[in-house]
Design a protein around this nucleic acid. Structure first.
Lengths: 267, 267
DNA sequence: GATCATCGTATTGTCGACAAACTTACAATA
DNA sequence: TATTGTAAGTTTGTCGACAATACGATGATC
């Protein structure tokens, strides 16, 4: 997974003399929140497992205060649930959530093609290059049968799409939705699923953008998201058992201790 | 502003015998976060004003720990910024933000009509009744020239729309976007703006839904959001000075101490 | 034998304190 | 007079501790 702060929209106006960019100081809570988010994406915090605060704080080398603050932030993003007196737990996604997430993505992502194609030519070339790089990463990952790397490239592809869509809010929202998408994978199967037709689908995205065909991009994206939902909602026993052992070798002692967590507050 | 937990989607299956709804215990952090959110919507925390933690914690009657946790949650929602060593500040919205927010709302809200019209008849009647009530609230507020109440009814109208749209995530997202919309009002003018044509616009929404005309609803919503952007981005001196004094009588000592706050972290 | 009550333990929720860091103001020097 | 350096004050960021609560286990009674 590429570093989010350096990848897509950094160093734009730092070369001007006398007009220095403000130094980006990152607080401890930010660090912890990023680390936790990373762990969620990683799968090292599996959905449903309840972790104790003290233990986690010790592992992270910080006190419980900042950790609790970071937990609250992740909770607001919908990634964590904080059951009463049971530490923290990564959200368990239900089939309902899968449909919800992908419906929302289907409202947003098809539109992104139009937004990107409305940008000046120079930027469009940058976007295409970047997206092409991600697809190549996906291809390499597929060749090595590395589901983790494939998933990472997938995340970065769509993150890049959102980042170039031109809306800060939308990029943040999409980032959360994408992490939730991966949580869906974790929650539906117990391991990563290597979807073989992921690469051609994303190649088609890049092609449509290169051809400046927003309509085709729209249709492709809708089809992709539909297929994604169908893949995810297929029966769990339809999942391949290929490399589950390697990816989840360090599976924790209790996979699903608290099965169904209710959100602490509505809306 | 109506209580969010009791208004729209409460008491659905609580009357069944032997199947009690779980008691909704709300933590202190939730309470503080709600209170802060309320204060932001209220205008009692004006954008840009830097509040000290200790002072705020004392006002709320809690310690700094839970307050800091709640602050982190609001930060994740994009409502607060936490500048280094300067307490907390309500986000100041720029014209860029106004366009961003309304572009995003325009992606989501027109679709809501279709979603609502796809629901069973009984629910649709409930929705229409509820939305009609909110419009009546808007009318009453307009008659009394109460900009605050008008804005509250406006928020609840659109919140209801999102709540009946059928997606938990979308409702949460829309709730944040709506609060941000109000922040735009606060940031663009220094007071509330009474938009006279708000009521007929929303009457038209209800009419379109009653006529089951999703296309008209779509077009009306797009037009409304466009108008909203134009209203907000009009020059500040175009704003009416009618009831600014009454609404912002308790304006704090320093309205805009730190003019331009950068977000603590990107994405 | 099963169920309920009571006790103990472990973990959280909250608070207070300490130290570091930033900001601001004042003074001194060029 | 302006700019820089220093010092003091205020506020945050972090940690440790205490108390309350919930959960689990064990024993007693029906």
């Amino acid at each position: 997974m590429s570093d989010r702060s350096s990848g897509l929209s950094g160093l734009t106006s730092a070369r001007q003399v006398g007009r220095l960019a403000p130094v980006r100081r990152t607080s401890t809570v930010d660090l912890i929140a990023d680390r936790l988010r990373e762990a969620v994406v990683d799968g090292s915090l599996p959905p449903g497992a309840a972790l104790g605060e003290a233990e986690l704080a010790f592992q992270l080398g910080v006190s419980r205060g900042p950790l609790r603050e970071a937990m609250q932030r992740l909770t607001a993003e919908g990634l964590l649930v904080i059951p009463r007196r049971r530490g923290l737990a990564v959200r368990t996604m239900t089939p309902e959530d899968v449909r919800d997430i992908h419906w929302l993505r289907a409202r947003i992502e098809p539109e992104l093609g139009r937004r990107i194609l409305a940008r000046p030519l120079a930027e469009r070339k940058t976007v295409l290059a970047e997206l092409g790089t991600e697809v190549k990463r996906m291809q390499r990952a597929l060749k090595k049968d590395d589901a983790r790397a494939l998933g990472d490239a997938y995340l970065d592809f769509h993150r890049g799409l959102a980042a170039w869509g031109g809306s800060i809010r939308l990029a943040r929202m999409m980032s959360t939705l994408l992490i939730e998408t991966r949580l869906c994978t974790f929650s539906m199967y117990e391991h990563f699923e290597v979807a073989v037709d992921l690469v051609p689908e994303h190649l088609a995205f890049v092609d449509a953008l290169a051809a400046e065909d927003a309509e085709r991009f729209d249709a492709l994206m809708c089809a992709h998201l539909d297929a994604e939902v169908r893949r995810l909602l297929a029966e769990p026993e339809a999942a391949k058992e290929d490399d589950a052992d390697r990816l989840l070798a360090e599976t924790p002692d209790e996979p699903q201790p608290l099965d169904r967590l209710d959100l602490p507050e509505g809306i």
